[in-house]
Nucleic acid binder design. Structure first.
Lengths: 237, 237
DNA sequence: AATAATACAATCATCAGATCATTGGAGGAC
DNA sequence: GTCCTCCAATGATCTGATGATTGTATTATT
C-alpha cells in the first residue's frame, strides 16, 4: 500500500539541487560536478540526472553547457532570454488574453518602478532609451531587443521578483508577436515616443502618470496587433 | 563554421510533438506511441526521448503515466506559468512579494469579473459566500477551502485564462500562509465581511468598487500576515 | 451468472556501459 | 608574443537491460 508518494529519483535530484541553492551550499555561478561524478555521488544513473537537469534548466535554475559543465544560473540581467520555452500553439483569443495580462501587470510595475528605482537603475534605463532612439532610424535589427530590455529593466527596478518572473514568461510567449509589431518602422517610432513618456514620468517619480503612459503604450501595441491578426491569419511554425 | 545552431535531438522531438498538436495530427487526450516505438520511429534513443518528454511535461503539453503511456494534455495559454516556483517561497521578503503580486492581479480580475461574469457564475459565487457565512461560526475546518474557492470563481469569471493560471500558481505558493490567517476566527469573520462587499459590488456591476474592496481585503490579509511573520520566525524546510 | 483473486502483458522508471561532439586550455611552431 | 594543433574534460546521444506500475484477461469462488 503506502502509495502516499513514491518520490521519483528524478524529483529527488531536483530537490537536492534546489535545497543546495536555498541553504547556500550552491551559489549562482558555481559549477556542479560532472554528470559522471554527480550521478555516482547521488546514487542515480546519468539518464535520471539528465532528466532532473532538464527540469532545472526549464525552471531557470541551472544552465548546461556542452564541453564546460553545468552551472547554477545567476539572476543575471535579461541575459538569456531566447533559451526559454517557445511553445506557441496559440489562437488569437489567447494572444489577446496574454496581452491583457501584460497590460495589467506591467502598468503596475511601471508605477512601482517610480517608487523604488534607484538612480543607477534610472540611468541604465535612460541609456537604453537613448540607444533605442538612435537605433530606430537605421537599424531595426536590434530594436526589438532594446525594446524588450527597456521593459525588463523597468520591471526589475520595481523590485518584485514574482512580477518580474511573470513578465519574463509573458515576454517569451509574446516575443514573436512583439517582433512583428516592431518590424514596422512606424510602430518602432511610436514605441519610442511612448517609452520616452514613461521614462519622463519615472524621472519625475510620478507613479500614476507612468502607469497611464504604460497603459497607453500597451494599448497601442494591442491595437496594432489586433489589426495584424485580422489581416493575417497564418501561424508560422 | 556554421555554428549557427545545431538543433539538439531533444529539441527536435519537442518540436515534432508540438507541431503535431498545432496541425491537428495530435489531439488532447491522445495517447502517444510507447517510448520504445516512438524512439524507433523518430530515430532517437529512449533517453533523448525521455528528456524531450520531461520538457513537454513541464510545459504542460503532455502527461506521462507509468504503466499506461504518455498522453497529450489539454493545453491552455496559462500552462506555461507553471514554473514560477523554483526556489521562491523561502524567506519572508518573497512571501511579501507574492502577496503584492496577488494584490495587483486579483484586484484587476475582480474588476474584470464585474464586466464579464454571467448571471449563472454570480449565482455560484453567491452560493459559496452563503456557505462561508454559515461555516464561519462553527466549522473552521473547511473555511479555507471555501475562501480559496471564492477567489478562484471570481478569477474564472474574469474570463482570462492567463490571469487565472497566475493566480492558481500564487494560490499554491501562498496556501499555507492563507490557512494560518484563517485559523483565527476573527480573521475568518473579517474575510467574510470583505467577501460580501466584493460580492455586492459584483452584483451592482461596479468594477471600481469591486477593485477597491478586493484591495482592502488583501491589504488586510497582508497586514495580518506581516504581524504573524514578525512574531514567528521559523521557516520550515 | 456475478464477483473476487490472480497472472500476464504493456508501459514507464531507472540503471549500466559505451561512443560522438564540443569546449577550453596546454604546449609547440613561427 | 601570436597563432595553431592537440588533448583532456564534459555534455549529447546511443544501446541494451532490469524493476515498478497499471490495465486487462483469465481463473477461481460463491
Amino acid at each position: 500500500m503506502g502509495q502516499l508518494r513514491r518520490v521519483s529519483a528524478c524529483e529527488s535530484v531536483v530537490e537536492y539541487i534546489k535545497n543546495g541553492i536555498i541553504d547556500g551550499r550552491l551559489k549562482p555561478g558555481d559549477r556542479l560536478p560532472s554528470e559522471q561524478r554527480l550521478s555516482e555521488l547521488l546514487g542515480v544513473s546519468r539518464g535520471t540526472l539528465r532528466e532532473a537537469f532538464k527540469k532545472l534548466q526549464l525552471m531557470g535554475v541551472v544552465a548546461v553547457k556542452q564541453g564546460e559543465g553545468t552551472f547554477v544560473t545567476k539572476v543575471s540581467p535579461g541575459a538569456m532570454m531566447r533559451s526559454l520555452s517557445p511553445m506557441l500553439l496559440m489562437d488569437h483569443s489567447s494572444i489577446l488574453e496574454l496581452i491583457e495580462a501584460r497590460k495589467i501587470i506591467e502598468a503596475e510595475t511601471a508605477s512601482l518602478c517610480c517608487l523604488r528605482a534607484s538612480p543607477a537603475e534610472i540611468e541604465e534605463i535612460e541609456a537604453i532609451l537613448k540607444a533605442m532612439t538612435e537605433c530606430s532610424n537605421l537599424d531595426l535589427e536590434h530594436f526589438d531587443e532594446l525594446d524588450i530590455e527597456f521593459h525588463m529593466r523597468l520591471a526589475k527596478a520595481a523590485k518584485n521578483r514574482v512580477l518580474l518572473r511573470i513578465l519574463e514568461t509573458l515576454r517569451d510567449l509574446l516575443f514573436e508577436q512583439i517582433r512583428e509589431v516592431l518590424k514596422d518602422p512606424e510602430g518602432a517610432t511610436r514605441a519610442c515616443k511612448y517609452h520616452r513618456q514613461i521614462y519622463s514620468a519615472l524621472v519625475d517619480r510620478d507613479p500614476k502618470l507612468a502607469k497611464r503612459h504604460m497603459l497607453a503604450h500597451l494599448k497601442n501595441v494591442e491595437d496594432t496587433l489586433v489589426q495584424m491578426l485580422l489581416h493575417e491569419k497564418p501561424i508560422e511554425s
